[in-house]
Design a protein around this nucleic acid. Structure first.
Lengths: 371, 371
DNA sequence: ACCCTTGCCGAAACCGGTTTCGGAAGTTCG
DNA sequence: CGAACTTCCGAAACCGGTTTCGGCAAGGGT
C-alpha cells in the first residue's frame, strides 16, 4: 500500500456513514437488487404484492436512492441548471430571491435539485453553461432574460440539451418558454394614461438587447395607436435600468420643448429615478407628471406617491419554469411548453389626470431653470 | 422485452451523446483505465512521462470526467450546498446576487458546483437540508445568517456533515465560520457620532434571533462606554429589518421625552426608513438627526443625503465561504477555518454634528405635532 | 551473482444503482 | 392434456469511474 495522500489533492469522504443501499433492502426481503429497483421504479413486471412489500421495507429501513448512482446508468442527475449573469451593479436583483425560491420549490416538489452558477459576462455565461453541460451537472437549463439573439440558446440547441427560456427570442424553433406579457402591460399603461387625458406620453425602455424591451416598446406604440395619439420618436427616452439612469432619462424628456405629462417605464427601478427628477424640479409625480412602470419591486410601494406598476410574480414564474423544464427533460415537445402570463396592475398614486398641459409644464420648467 | 414506458414515469436521456470516457483515453494510448485514472488524479505511482502522455491525450480527446460517476466511488459530488430561507417579503435580498456570485465563482475555480435550495420556514430549511444530506446532493453546506442557537448547526454536527457558517454562534465547537466584524463597525459608528458631539445616541437592532444582532448591539454599547456616555435602555429601538419598520422604530425614538440626535442602525434598510420618519417631521437627516447604518445596500448611495454606512463585501464573503468550505470538506479542522473581516466605512452625508440638542429637538417636534 | 527494494502499471474488484435476458412457474386454450 | 402464453423474478451485465492488489523489470547493496 502506498502513501497516497501526500500527493493526491483530495481524500476520502469525511463521513462514510453506513447508508442503506438497495442491496440492504433486497437482502432484508430475500429478493434481488434488480427486483427492488424495478419495484421502486414502477416497472410493470413486478407483482403488486411484491411492490408493496418492497416499498414498505424501503420505507422502514430508510432507504434513499443516491441520485448520482442512478445517474451513472440513467444519464439523469435530476437537477436543473441555472446560470445567472451578475454584472457590475444593477440588473435582476430584486426578483432574484423570489425567482430562485420558485424554481427550487417546484424542483423540490419533484425531488429534483437546482444547480446554480454565475458569470459576469455573456461569454462567461456561455462557457459556464457549456462546462455544466460537459460534466452533465444538470439535465436541462433555465435561461433567464433571453435576448433577441441569444448565444445560450444557440449553444444548447446545437448540443441538443433541454432548456426553457424566461422570455422569448427571435427564432423560436425548438424553444420552450414561459414569459410575462409585458407588451400587453405597456399597451394597457399607455391607454390608461391616454384615457386619463394625457396626450404627450413618453416611454423609457429597458436594456436594448433583451427581447422584453422590444415587446414592451411595441406595446407602448400599440397603446398610442389605440388612443389615436401619433407616435413621436422624441418621446422614447434613453434606455434605463437603474434609478440613476432613470433620473437622467426623465430629466432629458422633461427638457424637451414639448415635454411629456406622462411616462411609461419598462422597468420600475428606472421609474423610481423619475421621482428624483421630479423632486429636483419641484414637480409632483402623479400630478404634474404621471408615471406607470413595470416589474413590481417592493420599493415602489414605499415611494411617495406609491408607484403604479404592472407587477410580475417572479416566484410563480420560477415555479412554472422549473416544472416546464422538467417536462421538457422528460420528453415533451418544446412547442407544447410555451406559456404566457399577464402582469397584474397595481394601482397606486403615481398616475392621474394631467394637472398641467405639456405647454404649461414646459413654461413652468423654463421659469424654474432660470432661478 | 416488455413495454415499460407505459407505466414508468421517466425515461431515457434525451441526448445520449457519445461522450469520451476514461476507457476511450485508455484505448487510445494502449494503457488501462486504472492507469489513466491514477495519472489524472495525481497518484505518485505513475511515471512522469506517462502522466504527461495521458493528460495530453485526455486533453486532445476532450475527456471530461463525469462528476457523478466519480462520486459513486469517492463519495464526493464536488458540490456545495446552500439552503436559503426566503420568507414572505423582506430579508437578505440586496446581497443575494452578489453573495451567490461569490460562492459560485470560488466553487467554479475549483471545478465544484453549487446546489441551491430554498425554504420558507426554519423547519423547512432543516428538512431541506436533511434531504440534501440524505441524497448526498452536496458534500458540505454554507449556512447563512446563523443564529445564536441554530438548529441547522445541530443537525449537521450530529450527522458529521461538513459546514461553514456565515456568522457566528453561541457554541462554536466543531464550527468553521466567516463573518464580518459588525461589533467593531457599530462601536466605530457610535464613537464617531460621539466625537461629532452627540450624546443621545440610539440604536435600532436587527432580527433578535441572529447572532449578528447581539454582536452589533454589543458593539454599540462598547462605543457608548468608550465615549463615556451612559447606556439608556430607552434608546434601544424596536428591532427593524425593513424600511417600513425602520420608519416606525425611528418615529418611536423621536417621540421620546429626550429624543436621540443620532441613531445607529444594525441594518441599512431600516435606516432608510428613518429618512421617511424625518421627512414627515420636517427634519433633515445628517443635520437634525444623524444616522449611521450597516450593510452597504446600493439604495443608500442614492438616498438624500447619502447614507453613511459600514459596507460589507458580500461577494467576497461568498468567495471566502466557498473556499473555506472546500477546505473543510477536504479535511482541514474547523478550528483552523475561522475568518473575521472588517466592514468598511462609507462616509456619506447622513451623519454630522448635532444641529439641535436633544431638548431643542424635542420641543421642535412637540410644537410641530400640535399643528 | 543474488536478494531486496523500488518504480510502474495491469487485472480485477468495487461503488450503488439500472437494465437486459432468460427461465421457472402459472394460465389459457385448443 | 399438452402447447403456447403470461406473469414474475433472478442472474448477470452494465454505467464510468476509483482503488486494491500483485507482479514484472530495473536498480541497489553486499
Amino acid at each position: 500500500m502506498q502513501n497516497v495522500s501526500a500527493t493526491k489533492s483530495e481524500f476520502r469522504p469525511v463521513a462514510n456513514r453506513s447508508r442503506v443501499t438497495i442491496a440492504d433492502v433486497a437482502n432484508d426481503l430475500g429478493v434481488t437488487k434488480s427486483t427492488v429497483s424495478r419495484a421502486l421504479n414502477g416497472y410493470p413486471d413486478i407483482a403488486e404484492a411484491t411492490r408493496l412489500r418492497i416499498s414498505r421495507a424501503a420505507e422502514r429501513l430508510g432507504y434513499r436512492p443516491l441520485a448520482h448512482a442512478q445517474a451513472i446508468r440513467t444519464g439523469r442527475v435530476r437537477s436543473l441548471g441555472l446560470v445567472l449573469q451578475i454584472d457590475s451593479e444593477d440588473s435582476a436583483r430584486p426578483f432574484l430571491a423570489n425567482f430562485i425560491a420558485g424554481v427550487t420549490q417546484a424542483a423540490s416538489a419533484e425531488n429534483w435539485t437546482v444547480t446554480i452558477a454565475t458569470a459576469e459576462t455573456a461569454t462567461g455565461v456561455r462557457e459556464t453553461l457549456l462546462r455544466l453541460v460537459e460534466e452533465h451537472k444538470a439535465d436541462g437549463f433555465i435561461l433567464p432574460r433571453t435576448m433577441l439573439q441569444d448565444e445560450r440558446v444557440a449553444a444548447l440547441r446545437a448540443r441538443n440539451v433541454p432548456f426553457i427560456m424566461f422570455g422569448r427570442t427571435e427564432d423560436p424553433t425548438g424553444c420552450a418558454w414561459y414569459d410575462i406579457k409585458g407588451e400587453d402591460a405597456m399597451r394597457a399603461a399607455t391607454t390608461r394614461l391616454a384615457s386619463l387625458g394625457h396626450t404627450r406620453i413618453a416611454h423609457v425602455p429597458g436594456g436594448i438587447e433583451y427581447t422584453y424591451t422590444k415587446l414592451r416598446t411595441q406595446g407602448y406604440r400599440e397603446g398610442l395607436q389605440a388612443a389615436g395619439i401619433p407616435f413621436d420618436p422624441d418621446l422614447i427616452g434613453a434606455p434605463s435600468l437603474t434609478q440613476r439612469s432613470g433620473d437622467a432619462s426623465t430629466s432629458a424628456l422633461l427638457a424637451l420643448p414639448e415635454p411629456p405629462t406622462a411616462i411609461t417605464f419598462a422597468v420600475d427601478r428606472a421609474a423610481l429615478g423619475a421621482y428624483r427628477a421630479a423632486q429636483t424640479r419641484g414637480l409632483r409625480i402623479g400630478e404634474h407628471v404621471s408615471v406607470i412602470a413595470y416589474d413590481g419591486v417592493p420599493e415602489g410601494a414605499y415611494a411617495d406617491p406609491g408607484l403604479t406598476t404592472f407587477a410580475v410574480n417572479s416566484r410563480h414564474a420560477g415555479e412554472r419554469l422549473a416544472s416546464l423544464l422538467i417536462k421538457r427533460i422528460r420528453g415533451t415537445a418544446p412547442e407544447e411548453l410555451r406559456e404566457l402570463a399577464p402582469a397584474t396592475l397595481v394601482e397606486r398614486g403615481s398616475d392621474g389626470p394631467p394637472r398641467l398641459t405639456s405647454a404649461e409644464l414646459a413654461s413652468r420648467l423654463k421659469s424654474q431653470s432660470r432661478i
